[in-house]
Amino acid sequence: MRSQKLIGRAKQMRREATPPERKLWAYLKADQLGGAKFRRQVVIGPYIADFACRAPVMLVVEIDGDTHGAQGAYDAERTRFLERKGYHVLRFSNRDVMQDIESVLATIAASLR
């Protein structure tokens, strides 16, 4: 069950999106990528996914900032949880999104097929 605290945090994260999140969202919103409907800052269990799609496939896209290097175990458990829920998880670095958006989009599009 979703806690009100998590839902509130997700709303705050939508308002305070990072530059890489804003950049990727510009390409994912409004079904622009293969007609897939993405949502941002989605509560899934005890976690908030950066971007999630439920159709045509269940896909979570995470953008990892500098802090993710120190939290490998947390990210691994989070990924395992999302995979148990049926999601395929893709992770990209801030640098990937900001400097090579075409490759990021191509990888996401390939995962949607």
Rank of each mutant, 00 (worst) to 15 (best):
M1D: 07
M1W: 07
R2M: 03
S3H: 04
S3P: 04
S3N: 06
L6T: 08
I7Q: 07
I7Y: 01
G8H: 14
R9P: 02
A10S: 09
K11C: 00
K11Q: 11
M13A: 08
E16H: 14
A17E: 12
A17N: 12
T18Q: 05
P19W: 12
P19G: 09
P20R: 07
P20I: 01
E21G: 06
R22Y: 01
W25I: 07
A26R: 12
A26K: 14
A26Y: 12
Y27V: 01
L28M: 12
L28V: 13
A30G: 11
Q32P: 04
L33W: 08
L33P: 07
G34L: 09
G35T: 14
G35D: 13
A36L: 10
A36H: 05
Q41M: 06
V42M: 08
I44H: 00
I44Y: 00
Y47I: 04
Y47W: 12
Y47Q: 11
Y47N: 08
A49C: 14
F51L: 10
F51W: 07
A52L: 10
C53Q: 06
C53D: 03
R54D: 10
A55V: 14
A55P: 00
V57Y: 11
M58F: 15
L59W: 15
L59A: 12
V60M: 12
V60K: 13
V60H: 04
V60A: 12
V61L: 06
V61N: 02
E62K: 13
I63S: 09
D64R: 06
G65N: 05
G65I: 13
D66H: 06
D66M: 05
G69V: 00
Q71H: 11
A73F: 00
Y74C: 05
Y74H: 13
D75H: 02
A76F: 05
E77N: 07
E77Q: 14
R80M: 08
R80L: 09
F81A: 04
L82D: 10
L82K: 12
E83G: 00
E83V: 15
K85R: 14
K85Q: 15
G86V: 12
G86L: 13
Y87R: 00
V89M: 15
F92P: 06
S93C: 09
S93N: 01
N94I: 03
R95A: 14
R95L: 09
D96H: 03
V97K: 05
M98V: 01
I101R: 00
I101N: 04
I101V: 14
V104L: 03
L105H: 03
L105N: 07
I108N: 02
I108D: 01
I108K: 01
A109H: 11
A110H: 05
A110Q: 09
A110C: 05
L112F: 09
R113A: 08
